[in-house]
Design a protein around this nucleic acid. Structure first.
Lengths: 206, 206
DNA sequence: ATAGTAGTTGACTAATCGGTCAAGTGCAAG
DNA sequence: CTTGCACTTGACCGATTAGTCAACTACTAT
């Protein structure tokens, strides 16, 4: 087991932070090195290019996101309630970020993914796989909801993709309107896509 | 009336084209000038900065989009059918773009908007106003649908915003999955957000 | 004819970009 | 002590960046 080099992880977290707040194009390698207090030579000792650093940063961040998603989508909660927990966590994370950096930042996977997906295939694929990861959480909760008779049978892969799209769109709105309140109806809209009444779930878990 | 200078409009359309296919950061003023066959001096004769050019390009493009939206959301069609037409036009425009440039490009307002909204307030506001424009089309159709008794009364401003989010998310998926087929369930998902059965509308206008 | 205006041109700048590299440091095993 | 490995450093590179500018052309109104 490697003990994981501190400089490397510092670069990883700093890069994600900066690209989240700004963009890929407007964050230079020098910027990243400066905020991480690392010299450029070290940067290129660990990463062959800015693009590779970005992919690695996404990978590391996604692991942390997964931990949060595992909580929201834990089997210990009823399937539909998991979406409520997810919506709440989403709102919370955006509000926190705006509080700490002064601006609503949306989702770095979306912003950077869109910025580079026609030009950098590695980043495109990484972001694509992350979004598939989100869908897997959604789909599994829907499958379980069906098994418990909470929703009728249907194509849950498609519904999960629609939920994914909705959530991404809401995060786009959050950044462009510079306001996390764009997320306030997330839960309700998700349940409409699923085809159940919100009140039904909200009333059961007030 | 000014007869509208050719060089200027060439710069406008070329800039939008390039930023749609790539991104703001990776398209240089030189790139734009080269493809438009215009010298840089002329560029800065018409526009004080790259950012201003971008805002102007968005404004001009939005006018053309509006013409298309006016067709889809024309009062000559039943209110709910307008969404079907919109969904079809959306799919068509993405498919065409992929055919002509080889890649699915999504929506330039979203991509560039996300890329710059924390750094360039002018662009943020322009993109925000464009998205509000979309919502107005959606909301007006919903209001009319209610007036015709097709949908129950409700907060149509919120629903329009949700539809806007969904559509944006689908366009994000289109670019990141590099596949316009991400849009194939657009119509169905919109109707779920509205709260009506797709079949109802589809059957009426096959 | 002349003067003014609208548009065009290409050479120029200063700064910044991503990336390279040879020379180092400090530590651990032999 | 010595070798070797993991990591660090700062100077350096050529290319590219957004933006400037004085000189120029062509047309138009008087």
């Amino acid at each position: 087991m490697k003990p994981e080099c501190e400089t490397r992880t510092k670069l990883l977290t700093t890069a994600l932070e900066l690209m989240w707040e700004r963009s890929y194009g407007s964050v230079s390698v020098d910027d990243i090195c400066a905020r991480a207090d690392v010299r450029k030579g070290s940067f290129y000792y660990f990463f062959p290019s800015k693009s590779d650093l970005t992919v690695a940063a996404f990978e590391k961040n996604w692991e942390q996101i997964c931990a949060k998603l595992d909580q929201a989508f834990s089997p210990q909660h009823p399937p539909l309630e998991r979406f409520s927990r997810f919506a709440k966590a989403l709102y919370q994370s955006q509000t926190e970020k705006k509080g700490s950096c002064g601006k609503a930042c949306g989702c770095p996977y979306i912003s950077v993914g869109l910025e580079l997906s026609t030009e950098d295939e590695n980043i495109r694929k990484k972001v694509q796989s992350i979004f598939s990861g989100y869908c897997r959480y959604f789909e599994s909760a829907l499958n379980e909801a069906e098994r418990e008779g909470l929703i009728p049978p249907g194509n849950h892969t498609e519904t999960a993709r629609a939920i994914d799209a909705l959530v991404m769109g809401l995060l786009v709105q959050t950044k462009i309107f510079n306001d996390p309140e764009a997320l306030k109806n997330t839960e309700q809209s998700i349940f409409r896509l699923i085809g159940v009444d919100v009140a039904q779930s909200v009333a059961a878990h007030p």
